[in-house]
Simulated scan of single mutants.
Amino acid sequence: MSVPPHVRPLLAASTLVVLEADARVDEGPHEQRFERFEEWIDAWYAALASGSSAEPILHAAAHAHRVAPVKPTRVLMEQAFSVLRWDLDFREFPTYADWKAYAAGSAGATMVWALCMQGEYGESGERIIREYGYMAQMVDCLADVSEDARDGRVYLPLEDLDRFGVRREDLEAGRWTPAMADLVAFELARITDPMPAVLEMARAHPWMYPFCSALDDYIRHLCTAVSEAGSSLMRRVAVPPTGPMVRGGLGLWRSAHATSL
């Protein structure tokens, strides 16, 4: 809803390439996930080379890339896919810098890839979108912390757990502790503190601004959901309320529709 109507099919098709790859990493028998994932990536590059595919998503995405104002590079696509391979062979993140390298591909590269469908964004535009990628990935890690811990995975930087004295056994047992409350508050501040400055930078890119505004609104609602979850964060995934998300989406849709007339 945050992009003009003629862009939406292109953005949806390109995004679905990554979403389907992600689904193959997360779903189905574990012993088949790597093979199914690599099959999809190979099929995507074949569709990209030929311009068509018998698979509807890949066919639509190949068309989207053919007409995109900015051609996504192979390096950018590989950055997005490399993070999914990381999830197949999961390794934890000793430092925030290690986590940020993961987030650069997980959310950052995927968002930049989607942005290619709309127009030239430049170096500063890419920096803005990657900043939103870091924010979105961190709040997602916080929202899903209990679900990930039950699967034996800790996505938060280990140095942050050590800094606040959060014990792995408490995470895996779903115990809410004062240390965990302090860690969540710290990570939320790490997200929300730079948000006004990043959104202000986006104003210099008028066609990007609605897209960034949508990201900003979504991330803020999810941060609020994480903050308000409190101890229940250790039992369930934090989800923002539907009403504000729908109202925000409709406002963006009206704006994009009016601009295209």
Rank of each mutant, 00 (worst) to 15 (best):
L76T: 00
L76S: 01
L76V: 02
E78C: 11
E78D: 15
A80E: 07
A80D: 05
F81Y: 13
F81K: 03
S82A: 15
S82C: 08
V83H: 00
V83C: 05
V83K: 00
L84I: 05
L84W: 02
R85Q: 14
D87K: 02
D87I: 02
L88W: 02
L88Q: 06
D89Q: 14
D89N: 15
D89Y: 15
D89A: 15
F90L: 09
F90M: 05
F90W: 09
R91D: 11
R91T: 12
E92L: 08
E92N: 14
E92M: 14
E92I: 06
E92R: 15
F93D: 01
F93Y: 13
F93W: 09
F93S: 10
F93E: 04
F93H: 08
P94W: 06
P94Y: 06
P94G: 09
P94D: 15
P94E: 15
T95Q: 09
T95D: 06
Y96N: 07
A97G: 12
A97H: 11
A97K: 15
A97V: 12
D98E: 14
D98T: 05
D98C: 07
D98K: 04
W99V: 07
W99D: 04
W99P: 03
W99Q: 10
W99N: 05
K100V: 08
K100D: 07
K100H: 10
A101R: 12
A101D: 09
A101S: 11
A101V: 11
A101P: 01
A103L: 03
A103S: 14
A103Y: 00
A103K: 01
A103R: 00
A104W: 09
G105P: 05
G105T: 05
G105H: 04
S106G: 03
S106N: 12
